[in-house]
Design a protein around this nucleic acid. Structure first.
Length: 310
DNA sequence: AATCGGGTCAACCGCAGAACA
DNA sequence: CTGTTCTGCGGTTGACCCGAT
């Protein structure tokens, strides 16, 4: 499948669909030796595949903890909410959906949710390929770039484009969000107002937990500015999601308005700490918990905190 | 029954950041 | 500090499936 081989272009390497035999070999090898060293893995395992292909096959298909079957309503709802927060950062979204892979979620979004969202947000801008093109799917964003039409993917709302490339972040700074300070600055954290590039602010959000697509795109003036008021990298969210809130002892102090969790990634830095005297409420209302179920507990505090901040 | 078109999903590509030498 | 290699990510592709005609 796919295009001309590049990274896996060596002669004699298999391409395309994996056979059961290849799957067995790869599974057996990883079971015995573990993951990693993907580049050398095919040679050592006796597979005629490139390391990249092996890694992909394992992560997306062969891993024992892969959950098969349809995406549940709860999962879909969570995907929608996470997508509003994170954009097309599928790996981060997948990280909050046990047993689901980024590829699976990406496909599901493109074939299901994205269309619903798009159809509701801007029916007239919902374009399809001409019928003579192979795919009946949405026109790729590239094709629409500069055309004036709203790209079909990664866009919710009035032309705000989600940054599509994920970046890694070694620094985590959590705040309680836009507290009502007189000048809009968070002096303690050195956060100052800033208007982000259009491409970076698509974290829209209606705040209810329902998958009501008609509400998406309609509330730009509140939650869409969720990030715009802060000079902080949007990667903030990525790392925020990596936090296991259940492991943080101080997330139940409801009183204060400021909270700080810092981890610069430096080895000399303390691990994430909390300000016990004033932490933000991140408890999840019962209704939210019932919606998402136990699998999604780690996410629930985030979504609720989002609501609080907005 | 054959053909066509749209939808789905596994797999590939190129890129970017991290890790290492 | 710099260059190279490794790893992981998101976007894209095309084979396959299925329903409609």
């Amino acid at each position: 499948m796919g295009r001309n081989p590049a990274a896996c272009s060596k002669e004699g390497l298999n391409r395309g669909a994996w056979t059961a035999t290849e799957d067995n070999i790869l599974t057996a090898y990883i079971t015995m030796h573990g993951q990693g060293k993907w580049r050398d893995l095919p040679k050592r395992a006796g597979l005629k595949r490139c390391g990249k292909s092996c890694r992909l096959r394992w992560l997306n298909y062969l891993r024992p903890d892969i959950k098969r079957g349809n995406i549940s309503n709860d999962e879909e709802e969570l995907i929608i909410r996470l997508h509003r927060l994170l954009g097309n950062r599928w790996s981060l979204i997948a990280g909050r959906l046990p047993g689901r892979t980024d590829n699976e979620i990406k496909n599901y979004w493109n074939t299901n949710i994205g269309k619903k969202v798009q159809a509701h947000s801007n029916p007239t801008a919902f374009k399809r390929r001409p019928s003579n093109q192979a795919q009946g799917n949405l026109i790729p964003a590239k094709e629409l770039a500069g055309s004036g039409a709203a790209p079909p993917k990664a866009i919710i709302g009035s032309g705000n484009v989600i940054r599509t490339k994920a970046t890694r972040c070694t620094k985590v700074v959590l705040t309680s969000g836009p507290q009502d300070q007189s000048d809009g600055h968070d002096h303690q954290l050195g956060i100052k107002p800033r208007v982000l590039e259009p491409s970076s602010s698509t974290l829209l959000g209606d705040h209810d937990s329902s998958a009501d697509f008609s509400k998406i795109n309609l509330e730009e003036n509140n939650s869409s500015n969720f990030l715009e008021d802060f000079e902080m990298d949007e990667n903030f969210f990525s790392d925020f999601l990596d936090i296991d809130f259940s492991q943080l002892p101080c997330f139940e102090n409801n009183e204060g308005t400021d909270s700080i969790i810092t981890n610069t990634g430096d080895k000399d830095e303390p691990s994430p700490t909390c300000n016990h005297q004033s932490t933000t409420t991140l408890l999840v209302p019962e209704e939210d918990q019932t919606i998402h179920g136990s699998d999604f507990q780690p996410m629930a505090p985030l979504t609720e905190s989002e609501l609080d901040w907005i």
